[in-house]
Design a protein around this nucleic acid. Structure first.
Length: 875
RNA sequence: GCGGACGUGGUGGAACUGGUAGACACACGGGACUUAAAAUCCCGAGGGAGUAACCUCCCGUGCGGGUUCGACUCCCGCCGUCCGCACCA
């Protein structure tokens, strides 16, 4: 009996088993073909996959399958970013051990991913919480330590009071912890750091070479590294009496405006402030006040610029006898430059605001070049009343020996003079800080060092690695369980043998994800990375993931790859040749009257357009339809991929994810859209069922002479190969989908058409078309592809079949339809032979009724003919 | 404030290098099949005007200019939306 419907539930697992049994997707270094490494950002094992994963991994899988069909030797692995706080939270809330929780989640998610039919090399699967993985991470760390890439020092760190741990600067967003959302506090702790800042220039420069990265991500990284070139120099401090009182070192990128200096300001954390606060109670109070208003987003945004005058003054370096006040100011940051600035209110907006508020002098020292005479005089006179400062190009004024110079010249002159006095030097500053990697958590990779009273910090011996996490830990008290684990924490010093303690901090989990792409090359090796394997596979040719990792993960990975190069573990600097950041999956939100969010599965929608109404399925209560937002647990607007796969199958969800929206933009999940994808799956299946008995038999020869429609169909097919290939190459999956739709429509009009019943040529061309369309959608809907492929009597699997070659002779059409314009407006069209001469086209165009009418008897001045494109008659 | 991206029908979007704007899909309307429904198939559609009809004309890619035989595409100036960064001296 012929089934009237394709049953994905049964067929998808059938094909998955066959792929698996044949080990089709295992990557081997000795395999034929140029290597191609496609990687999607590995997931955190939260327990269930979400739609974002489906979108991400589907895209990667299309690329992997396409490249494989194109003859590339493809590496397409999957792993788990498995350390991190949710596991500990589960332990605290539910008493389940983080390891048990994590591995159970991994098992569940692996099953879900497998149901998607992804062409992954599961033999390379890794989990960062596996001692096999983190042992190698510890080795890397010890190598980095030896190479001087690691440091340990006391530092003011960002402390997350909720998660009880330190955060890297990159993990503080608007003054709050990136996970907990808690207000971050400053604490002084001794920490381990990766010296990423010494690579700032290199990391910045190399961004220019990352041509297959989105400009947006490169810009974000540039801003994050935050290079600024300026002059760091010392100014003389004087006391009330005019006697020397030491020096104040400042950093400026606008040292050309030194004659506009009317004050100096220091941070409240600056030594000068601390010194003065000892005797100055009012200052102490002021500092306290500033700290209280804090570093929150709102506070910073609204904060008035305030300052508190100190007892010392600064002597102007080039104007004898002139001194300016020194203030502690709330807008000066200790963490940047020297924590002290010279203020030039004339050409710095902050300084300008500050001076207006405090009534300090404002001296303009740069004037736009186009100002002359009276204009220039009034520019200077009215300067203080301007709403905004002038910070454009110009010529120096009011600046003695700098007068008349350009800004660049003045900067050079000032730098030269300070250098000659031995009081300053040109300096490049970066915003990028060293990466603090110590975390006071249990569920992370232990930092493999031992603290010995006699020997100090002693690295764990290679033979003693890995430093495994102890399993018998309790989460009944806040803080790090490792810190109170007596048998694990207490050990002996590898050097002197005396009693010693282990480092109880673990790595930031971003360390784990900074090299996993390298580990995939040799996932079971007992060294971090086998050089031959790394050299063979890296860089990742196409990396796909969310924009949320534009800075953190991608910058750290770039750093890590360089560090691995320095320590001989890799031969390259940039890990990701091509980067693609995909958009999010959005959905409408639903709310009950009491404000509670409702999941889409519990909402029934009636009506359409403005008349759309929603009701709660179980209670029939009215539901308000809210805005379209990113699917998130907090808004309850999530759709579980497993439900969709169970209902429609993996191919449908994959197809929908690739349709319509360009992959870099957000996609809106809609039930109607999925249903549409489902209908298309069925349509293709029916078409192939019909075709299997109608088209020419498999492996039959092409009949000698093809009829016109047969040739035409072949043309359509072969042009489609080209267009779909181009679309997939450039990751425009939505365009590829549209091409398949269009192509399918064409095939449908041919297959089974009684008109062609006796045309052996078209039956042959129809077979070719059917095979091509299967191959075109096969990377996107691989199960359906195999199903249809086998329906057409193929013994070989589609997954093993090479991508079809487009016949160049068929790519060009014999006749082309071109538009005919009169004065740039389209009036008619013309179908001519492809190779028709300009003269013939012109003559034909000038005979068209619509053209003659449009000309209305005027003289034809000019006729522009672009063969195969357009004719424009200028009258 | 700085930086980036974007703005096209009811909706998502397509348009090669400046050459027929709206492919393809969703939603919609009409029809066929059916006792009926589902499923499926066919047809229609940017807006407006004229015509019995074939068709024809006008307007149209956020707004205003410009370059060009020709502009969604390039240039200048605005407006708007989204994202990122932000007292970084």
């Amino acid at each position: 009996m012929v089934q009237s419907r394709y049953n994905p539930r049964e067929r998808e697992s059938h094909w998955q088993k066959i792929w698996n049994d044949k080990d089709l997707f295992l990557a081997r270094e000795d395999a034929k073909g140029e290597k191609y490494y496609v990687l999607e950002m590995f997931p955190y094992p939260s327990g269930r996959i979400h739609m974002g994963h489906v979108r991400n991994y589907t895209m990667g899988d299309v690329v992997a399958r396409y490249k494989r069909a194109r003859g590339f030797n493809v590496l397409h692995p999957m792993g788990w970013d498995a350390f991190g706080m949710p596991a500990e939270n589960a332990a605290i809330e539910r008493g389940v051990h983080p390891a048990k929780w994590t591995y159970a989640n991994i098992d569940a998610m692996r099953t879900q991913l497998k149901a998607l039919g992804l062409s992954l090399d599961w033999s390379r699967e890794l989990a960062t919480c596996d001692p096999e993985y983190y042992a190698q991470e510890q080795k890397l760390f010890l190598d980095f330590l030896e190479a001087g890439i690691v440091s340990r020092h006391s530092a003011n760190v960002n402390w997350d009071p909720v998660d009880h741990t330190v955060l890297a600067n990159e993990q503080v967003i608007d003054g709050k912890g990136w996970r907990s959302g808690a207000e971050v506090e400053q604490r002084e702790l001794t920490q381990w750091f990766f010296k990423i800042s010494v690579m700032a220039e290199e990391l910045l420069q190399a961004l220019d070479g990352l041509e297959r990265w989105p400009e947006k991500v490169r810009t974000m990284q540039r801003n994050w590294i935050g290079k600024s070139e300026g002059l760091q120099f010392k100014l003389d401090l004087v006391d009330d009496e005019g006697a020397s009182a030491g020096e104040l070192e400042v950093f400026s990128t606008r040292h050309d405006t030194i004659f506009g200096m009317t004050f100096c300001a220091v941070s409240m954390d600056h030594p000068l402030t601390a010194e003065a606060a000892k005797t100055n109670q009012a200052l102490g109070k002021y500092i306290e006040e500033c700290r209280r208003s804090g570093t929150t987003e709102e506070a910073l945004e609204k904060a008035e610029k305030t300052g508190h005058v100190l007892d010392v003054r600064v002597a102007h370096p080039f104007i004898d006898g002139k001194t300016v006040p020194v203030l502690t100011a709330n807008f000066v940051l200790m963490g940047y430059g020297t924590g002290a600035i010279f203020g030039c209110p004339g050409h710095d907006q902050r300084d300008f605001d500050f001076c207006k508020a405090l009534g300090l002098d404002i001296i303009p020292v740069v004037a736009p070049d186009d100002l002359k005479g009276v204009e220039l005089v009034s520019y200077i006179e009215d300067y203080s009343d301007r709403p905004e400062i002038y910070d454009g190009e110009g010529t120096l004024i009011n600046s003695e020996f700098l007068d008349g110079m350009t800004i660049i010249e003045a900067k050079q002159e000032i730098a030269k003079r300070f250098e000659a006095m031995d009081k300053g030097e040109r300096q490049v500053n970066y915003r990028l800080r060293d990466w603090g990697i110590s975390r006071q958590r249990y569920w992370g990779c232990p930092i493999p060092v031992i603290h010995c009273g006699a020997c100090g910090i002693v690295p764990v011996r290679a033979a003693d690695l890995p430093v495994k996490l102890p399993e018998d830990v309790s989460f009944d008290k806040p803080g790090n369980p490792l810190d109170r684990h007596p048998t694990w924490k207490n050990t002996t010093c590898p050097t002197c043998g005396k009693d010693a303690t282990r480092e109880t901090d673990t790595f930031d989990t971003f360390v784990d994800s900074s090299w996993y792409f390298a580990r995939f090359c040799s996932p079971r090796a007992d060294v971090p990375a086998v050089r031959e394997a790394v050299d063979a596979w890296l860089p990742v040719d196409q990396y796909i993931g969310g924009i949320e990792h534009a800075i953190l993960h991608l910058l750290y990975s770039r750093f890590f790859t360089r560090a691995m190069k320095e320590t001989g573990h890799a031969g390259l600097s940039e890990p990701f040749d091509g980067l693609f950041t995909q958009g999010m999956v959005n959905h409408e939100t639903y709310k009950l009257e009491d404000g509670a969010w409702v999941v889409p599965a519990d909402v029934k929608i009636e009506g359409e357009g403005d008349a759309r109404r929603a009701v709660h399925v179980t209670t029939c209560a009215p539901v308000t339809i809210g805005s379209i937002e990113k699917m998130s647990k907090s808004k309850h607007n999530t759709v579980d991929p497993e439900d969709i796969i169970g209902h429609y199958g993996a191919d449908t969800i994959r197809w929908f994810m690739l349709s319509d929206s360009p992959p870099e933009r957000d996609v809106q999940w809609t039930e109607a859209g999925v249903a549409g994808a489902w209908r298309f799956v069925q349509r293709l299946w029916r078409l192939m069922g019909k075709a299997s008995s109608w088209i020419a038999p498999a492996k039959s020869e092409m009949p000698g002479e093809l009829s016109e429609p047969a040739l035409e169909l072949r043309g359509v097919s072969h042009r489609r190969i080209q267009r779909v290939s181009e679309a997939i190459e450039s990751l425009k999956f939505n365009v590829a989908v549209a091409q398949v739709h269009e192509f399918t429509r064409v095939i449908e009009t041919v297959v089974g058409n009684p008109k062609y019943e006796d045309d052996a040529g078209i039956k042959w061309a129809a077979r070719e078309a059917c095979e091509i369309v299967i191959q075109m959608f096969g990377s996107m809907m691989p199960h359906l592809g195999e199903e249809c492929w086998s329906m057409l009597d193929h013994d070989q699997l589609l997954a093993e079949t090479p991508w079809p070659q487009a016949d160049p002779a068929l790519l060009v059409e014999d006749t082309v339809t071109i538009a005919v314009q009169v004065n740039g407006k389209r009036r008619d069209e013309l179908t001519v032979a492809r190779n028709a001469s300009k003269e013939d086209i012109e003559a034909a165009a000038l005979k068209l009724d619509n053209v003659l009418r449009a000309i209305e008897g005027r003289d034809v001045k000019k006729v522009i003919v672009v063969p195969q494109r357009i004719v424009n008659v200028v009258a």
